[in-house]
Design a binder for these strands. Structure first.
Lengths: 352, 352
DNA sequence: GTGAAAGCGCTAACAT
DNA sequence: ATGTTAGCGCTTTCAC
């Protein structure tokens, strides 16, 4: 690998002049610059990034640490956002995953710091509280899809409440009044936020909250299936699901009972999983979580922090969760009328 | 940040002695070592990794470059495998994604080389041929889930044929003879391999290949749905799907026609997507693709190459695709008998 | 405008 | 067994 000196020798200048060319120093004769540029080209010289770093103290590397990347396609979107933002800012990402192991988490942070990363992005695979280890205090840190349970730390999370509101509103606007919600356990911030959004929307439309329309459990297809079955007794005209996977289970249950979506029951999901939502029959109306944007926000924030080191103003930023309209929502029972079937009969079938 | 010299001063030794302690040099008095260790502890000294690298020429960093990480949960498994192997070998991973953009790919490789990575793992989100850019020739390279169309390069891919064989065999062993396959376009190596495996298994069981049982198209639920509908005319007792997503579509079609899985038709998928396969009703029997293992193999190979630099013996390694048995496969029509229904009637229903 | 010298934090080679 | 010197490839400071 050629070095500055090799280039200088070939160009017949001091090696400092080469350095000046590379760093675009303004005080340089043009002929000098051309000579050097030619030599650089000829040797295919590329600056030794780490040597530069040793001198300047800037590594231009960020660490991306996450608890588990393999189990969810979300992590990929966060990384992608972080990655693109890094690239824009001339930085690279050192990625580490901890598998959720606390002692490994500590080791990962240390490994990153030892590599002189300029900041750490810590992302979790679902929205939750995390305890920030002391080691991470040494350098700028941004939490993604999680927030610190101990002390203030900059963090970026989805606006779950806004998402729940958007999902419910789209149902209310179409005329639904008996809207069920299949939620996850309230120990999850996402579940709490989405329920709050649901209640707020109800209130704004003057619909009274009815706890009999609420189910609470897990995030999975199985949960959706079971709760949908039990919900049929309460005769909802629409079901808001806490996740796309729950919505999948709801689809199964509804179809099994001979109910059509959206003619008989409208369904809204949450997550906009590209592998699932657009490919269900009918394609699922759902809420998009801004994973990409969170990853990118985190890195942009870190890059800014590098310039103006004001880590003092720590904050929790909530990014919008937007509704993605597809085909699983319609007016209540409209489909029956359109098909020419007597609305009463279908109603009976549904509510039997 | 404290340096070697700070530690040396505190411990009252030369700074080279400290270096020796850190690098576990054998020739050291124990009292010396203790003194130094105490000073290191007191100052919370941590070696400056990049300075060390500058001297030794070893960065202990690998680049993980992939075309697109966000669109598939597979990428996460590859990264995870690569990551854990890196950690075992004292290395870290610099991740970059190219978004499939060729010029960006080039830039990414250069950025990685400029950071003095010791090797590159290049992974694709689905099994395919890639053209390796000249830039990548400079340092050790391993291709994951893809292979080089130009010249020999070490690469690790799934054994698609073995996977197709395993899926088909499990059906044949249960007594199925009319086994349909919903495949993807044959421009994909995965589709070719899985079809070959299907045919090999058929041959081993003395079953003649029947092209009317084959459908070719895309990877998605929609494809599965449409092909399943058209397949019902040919009365298969089992359907082998090229992907879990295709299997999802098949489930939809079968259920819509009142056919039960596996009682009326057995279904096998491919991919073992943890978000889908175990949560379908019934849980999907499928074939696991060794993403984790491929990622980890790539890094282990690179780490070995670092020790014994024998890049000459380039190779394509195929890793096993194993069957994951769940509930979507049974003997042909067995369910009808078990339910006490006359087998003939059910047969009629199915083949009508 | 250009060059010479110093040094970032560390390890390798040679002393002692 | 420990210390001294040199230098990895680069940028910064300060002469000229």
């Amino acid at each position: 690998m050629p070095t500055l000196k090799d280039v200088a020798k070939l160009a017949g200048v001091s090696f400092k002049t080469v350095s000046r060319v590379i760093n675009r120093s303004p005080h340089l004769k043009d002929e000098m610059r051309q000579k050097v540029l030619r030599a650089i080209d000829a040797l295919e010289y590329r600056p030794h990034h780490n040597a530069r770093h040793l001198r300047t103290g800037r590594s231009n590397v960020l660490a991306f640490i996450n608890d588990d990347i393999a189990m969810t396609p979300f992590a990929g979107r966060i990384i992608q956002g972080a990655q693109e933002a890094s690239w824009r800012n001339g930085m690279l990402l050192l990625t580490l995953h901890t598998g959720g192991d606390r002692s490994f988490e500590r080791a990962a942070v240390h490994a990153a710091i030892d590599r002189q990363v300029e900041g750490i992005v810590f992302a979790t695979m679902y929205h939750r509280a995390v305890e920030v280890r002391e080691a991470a205090f040494e350098i700028p840190l941004v939490l993604v899809d999680c927030f610190a349970s101990n002390g203030p730390h900059t963090s970026v999370v989805p606006d779950e409440t806004g998402g729940g509101y958007a999902a419910t509103k789209c149902l209310l606007e179409r005329g639904h009044r008996r809207i069920a919600m299949i939620n996850a356990d309230l120990k999850y911030p996402a579940a709490v936020g989405r329920l709050n959004g649901y209640r707020e929307a109800l209130k704004d439309f003057g619909v009274e909250f009815d706890s009999r329309l609420i189910r609470t459990g897990g995030w999975w297809q199985e949960d959706g299936y079971e709760h949908a079955i039990s919900l049929l007794e309460v005769k909802p005209t629409a079901i808001f699901c806490v996740s796309d996977r729950v919505a999948m289970g709801v689809y199964d249950a509804l179809k099994e009972r001979g109910l059509r979506i959206p003619e008989d029951v409208s369904v809204v999901g949450f997550d906009d999983q590209e592998l699932i939502a657009p490919h269900l029959r009918p394609a699922l109306t759902t809420v998009r979580v801004p994973y990409f944007e969170m990853g990118s926000w985190a890195v942009e924030h870190l890059a800014e922090a590098g310039r103006a080191v004001d880590q003092s103003k720590r904050q929790i930023v909530r990014l919008d969760c937007l509704l993605v309209s597809r085909c699983s929502v319609s007016k209540p029972f409209q489909g029956f009328a359109m098909l020419g079937e007597p609305a009463r009969a279908s109603r009976k079938k549904h509510r039997a």
